[in-house]
Design a binder for these strands. Structure first.
Lengths: 204, 204
DNA sequence: GCGCTTATGGAACGTACGGTCCATTACGGA
DNA sequence: TCCGTAATGGACCGTACGTTCCATAAGCGC
């Protein structure tokens, strides 16, 4: 019968309007995925935290996996914004880098969830190429900001000018990822502080 | 009817003998879990790689989760043994530490799987206290070996005597964990080498 | 207020999972 | 050779999952 299916792909103001705020719902889903991972988060979990019905979730987000990818993207955006803001507001770039690493101590207080991007890398690196791509792009953004931070620190004289900023940015990403994993694995604040001190000493 | 159930809990030589080698089967399961994680490994996957039937698996290992925990324990044992052997055979402890970090480059060649212990931390830290305990114990063992390596390196004059060996051991565990995650996230060999160089520079 | 379009709630579906059970098979000891 | 014991294969089970579908509700433009 060639039934024509209408899909509303762009925002329009005809028809019944959404009865929930997509951003709020997305944030809720993001925190759920962040806390429990993709597989350990069930549809029921999502519906409960997002406060919407199954149909609405499918209508609005297309299913569990598309929703997840949007959550990762949202996490990346928010994290990048916070980093950029922190860097812009910091008295020195070196201070920002130190504060950035020390932020892992906040995680440990409220049940460490790690970094959603790295958690996703760990869960999907082998099995889902598209998600692996998303992860790579997210990390690239973090890397870029940290590279800018290193370059500014070099200009400010807090990191030797001859060091390779890209390499140090990679090092910081890797170190942060390791720290978050250690926090998840149960390391206490003192242990983390000790590791951070050694990590920072490599910048001198 | 009080039917008496006999459970053969210890190795005995009466009755039909096992038709598979438990160690071989355990190794196969370990590699499966290591590659795909707990949730992404199905019973079917396990039966296929282990080459045994469901009843045998349940009879011999008690189910999926007990099997998984034995795999993690086995991984820990093997990894610890390899580390200790490497340390014992190394011309200098510093050389061992460098080789240890560089071993992440081998991973990247054959599809990086990370470290089973850290992967497990990432997957279960929040939800399964018993497994989190296992993970903590495994890490403690790695930490201990690395601490011994640092102490020997100090005796050999390759690490300053005033550094805290326990702290440096934590740092190495964290760094290795970060490197493995970066490898999983798609970092290439050159990038990893650069990070390793910076990591090692913190020991000077 | 009517009709178009879309969101919503909830029932229903197929499937794949981990786990259980039992009849059968196979070995070792007497 | 027979018996006791334990391993094996495969059918079976209940459940929880992600997904689909449809009837109904609800705004907005005319």
């Amino acid at each position: 019968m060639n039934r024509v299916v209408h899909k509303c792909l762009m925002a329009t103001n005809i028809g019944r309007p959404l009865q929930f705020d997509p951003d709020t719902a997305l944030d809720a889903a993001m925190h759920q995925f962040w806390s429990k991972g993709y597989e350990h988060t069930s549809m029921q979990d999502l519906l409960a935290t997002m406060n919407l019905s199954k149909s609405s979730l499918y209508q609005a987000f297309g299913g569990k996996q598309p929703l997840f990818r949007r959550c990762v993207a949202r996490y990346t955006d928010q994290f990048a914004v916070r980093m950029r803001e922190g860097l812009a507001a910091a008295p020195s770039s070196r201070a920002f880098i130190e504060a950035f690493l020390h932020s892992v101590l906040d995680d440990v207080r409220e049940g460490p969830r790690g970094c959603l991007v790295m958690n996703t890398a760990s869960e999907f690196a082998q099995s889902e190429p598209e998600i692996a791509q998303d992860v790579a792009h997210s990390i690239e953004r973090f890397r870029g900001i940290l590279r800018a931070a290193v370059e500014r620190a070099q200009r400010e004289g807090d990191i030797a000018a001859e060091r390779d900023p890209a390499m140090l940015a990679n090092y910081l990403v890797s170190s942060m990822s390791g720290l978050k994993t250690q926090a998840k694995a149960g390391a206490d604040a003192e242990t983390l502080k000790g590791i951070i001190a050694v990590v920072l000493s490599a910048l001198d």
